[in-house]
Design a binder for these strands. Structure first.
Lengths: 150, 150
DNA sequence: TATAATCCCTCTAGTGACTAGAGCATCAAG
DNA sequence: CTTGATGCTCTAGTCACTAGAGGGATTATA
């Protein structure tokens, strides 16, 4: 049995984040010692590592909740589980593609700058005039929230 | 002079978002008609388009604020302005690189699945055991907020 | 045993960039 | 003059944390 600080070091998850995970039901409530401090066991550490790894791979908390729920039924087929992972892979690829389009556009904008004054700066001009864009970020092609920015 | 709804259509920015931009000082407060409704002119539309385009390229609101401020001094050198754009390009490239590392890891995890039951699912195993990872998302290599997830 | 440093507790509020909804006022068309 | 769309303000919610206040508990050292 160990303290929340020890668990934090073992797992790489910050102390407030561990408490946050408990508050949203990702981690079960642990036991307490006589001084009301949380005391964890190896199972808690394993689950927290699982959560941390999944978050590091970009899974949403809701996905992780679903993964944990499924892991409680080891006899069932794992199709739904794999599907969550495949969806995450697809989301990641979509994000990469969109960011690459932005990268190309930004590179074009930056390349045109000739280091003069603001008044005739090509960067400002490019930002102000959407029609100069060759890339795929037309008014409807990209939603901001899909860029991983929101 | 046109209404906020018309401005929204012209710019591709939703009505509540326009009001939000005004509330945080990105857009100047427009005039009102006798019924207290906002009335915009072409300059407002141009500025909103500028903001929209910059957001679509991933610039943070604070960056956009800085860009707008600089555009008020057309006689100054545009170095600082270009630097913001170059920083954005660098950020975008960093995000792409990190997402590509995640993509590789996810692809590896998903590829190992043989479609059986949850109990021996390789996806769960891979998520639970960080040490299986070949990629660069070690415990300290990636912070979650740097993935564009936060 | 006393004390100091470190750790832990709960609770509230803040982050970024919006989005949703309540409850009401105004406008444009027929 | 009515009706439906549009507009107004204000509050609260989103996501996944993070920061801070104001205290209590534990542990290491003197």
């Amino acid at each position: 049995m160990f303290s929340i600080g020890q668990l934090s070091k073992d797992s790489g998850v910050k102390v407030p984040t561990i408490r946050y995970y408990e508050s949203i039901g990702l981690l079960p409530e642990p036991g307490r010692n006589t001084g009301n401090q949380r005391r964890y066991d190896g199972a808690a550490r394993d689950r927290l590592r699982f959560i941390h790894h999944a978050r590091a791979l970009g899974f949403a908390v809701d996905d992780i909740r679903a993964l944990i729920k499924m892991s409680d039924h080891p006899e069932r087929p794992c199709m739904a589980l794999d599907q969550i992972a495949r969806d995450q892979l697809a989301k990641t690829r979509t994000r990469i593609a969109r960011l690459q389009a932005l990268e190309a556009e930004l590179a074009r904008i930056v390349a045109n700058c000739e280091g003069e004054v603001v008044g005739n700066c090509s960067v400002l001009a490019a930002l102000g005039d959407h029609s100069q864009c060759a890339g795929p970020h037309g008014p409807t092609a990209l939603s901001l929230s899909d860029q991983g920015l929101a």
